[in-house]
């Protein structure tokens, strides 16, 4: 709780003029572990532990991290599929629960899931799946149907051939196009893409990524792009947020982070990225071991158990997000922070 507040203060309020479209403030989600007799709580998984970030209008914010770091939980928290324990979501200056209703939030923030098959109802035609949301929001059946056809056309599927088909009859790439069309059916401002292309073949993935880029330009969309594929994130994103064990390790412009990561974790993550150039193979710092258990995360900096630069202060004090050299770049590491007590003032090359 206090940690969440501190991060909140560090992030600061943006001036209302160029106010971020989506603001996340100290959001927390702990899952109770039920076990033992009568489902007593035996502990909590600290899936998302007080993270704050902004999404600016028209940008793509990439979120990266190992599996289990809270990427998908964050995505679900953004559309309140999971209700946060603490923290606030502010859309376009209006706070969820105060002057923004859940219905309004969901009209404006839509989501595309990873599993293209599981995210379409097998008993509905593609057209019916897309038309469902607009019909729920009061559009007449005929209009919703017409809109569904238009959206199918927009995502590159000929309406006449595909409107009456069922999900099992089309390929994974086509299904994901339908899921994108479904997410766009409410004319949202923000689309959250939770590993939306991760399950696709590389060639199909590229086509879908291009489609996403085209749609973004055409419809003036804002993306939150969640992936574990660092190359894809670099291709898609304007800014990147690196998550580790339910916390933000580093956030900033994609070029700054990919060129000079300020957090040892980001550096290790980027170093593990396979290079296209056979001469520059991945050597140096590669992470070993699994991330620690989020049920009982390490004290201080959560990364200190795996960090090559850890000192006494790292296990004692939690590092806050501090601004770095590049504009809008900040990282939660004692190295390079102000008066942190760490002997290093910069990560050694």
């Amino acid at each position: 709780m206090t940690e969440a507040l501190m991060t909140h203060e560090t992030a600061g309020e943006a001036p209302s003029a160029d106010r971020p479209l989506l603001q996340v403030r100290g959001i927390v989600k702990h899952f109770p572990l039920k076990g033992g007799l009568f489902g007593r709580s035996t502990g909590t998984v600290r899936a998302v532990d007080g993270i704050s970030f902004d999404v600016r209008k028209g940008e793509t914010l990439g979120i990266v991290g190992e599996s289990g770091c809270g990427k998908s939980t964050t995505a679900r928290l953004l559309v309140d599929l999971i209700t946060p324990d603490d923290g606030e979501i502010v859309f376009d200056g209006r706070k969820l629960g105060r002057d923004l209703t859940l219905t309004e939030l969901r009209r404006n923030v839509q989501m595309v899931f990873q599993d293209s098959y599981a995210s379409l109802n097998p008993r509905l035609t593609l057209e019916d799946s897309i038309a469902f949301a607009p019909a729920v929001h009061g559009m007449t059946d005929a209009d919703a149907r017409r809109l569904a056809r238009e959206l199918l056309f927009k995502v590159g599927l000929e309406p006449k051939r595909f409107a009456g088909r069922y999900p099992h009859e089309i390929s994974g790439g086509q299904r994901q196009r339908v899921n994108i069309a479904r997410a766009l059916a409410l004319s949202p401002k923000v689309v959250i893409l939770d590993e939306a292309v991760s399950a696709l073949d590389k060639s199909v993935e590229a086509q879908v990524l291009n489609l996403l880029m085209d749609l973004k330009a055409e419809l003036d969309l804002t993306y939150v792009f969640i992936s574990h594929d660092l190359n894809v994130v670099r291709f898609m994103s304007d800014r990147v947020m690196v998550m580790y064990l339910g916390e933000v390790a580093e956030i900033g412009p994609v070029d700054a982070i990919y060129a000079k990561p300020a957090h040892p974790y980001s550096r290790a993550l980027l170093a593990s990225m396979p290079s296209m150039d056979p001469d520059s193979r991945t050597e140096a710092v590669v992470l070993t071991g699994d991330p620690p258990n989020p049920i009982d995360p390490p004290s201080g900096c959560r990364f200190h158990t795996r960090c090559g630069f850890a000192e006494a202060v790292c296990s004692r004090e939690k590092p806050l997000l501090h601004a770095r050299a590049a504009q809008g770049h900040s990282a939660a590491c004692h190295v390079g922070g102000v008066d942190t007590g760490h002997t290093l003032s910069e990560l050694p090359a």
Partner: peptide, 22 residues
């Protein structure tokens, strides 16, 4: 627990409508 029910929830449909349709 399947994603299409999650997607329907994210579209803002009421529980009753989701049960009926999905």
């Amino acid at each position: 627990k399947i994603d299409y029910v999650e997607a329907a929830r994210a579209s803002g449909a009421s529980g009753f409508t989701i049960v009926r349709v999905h």
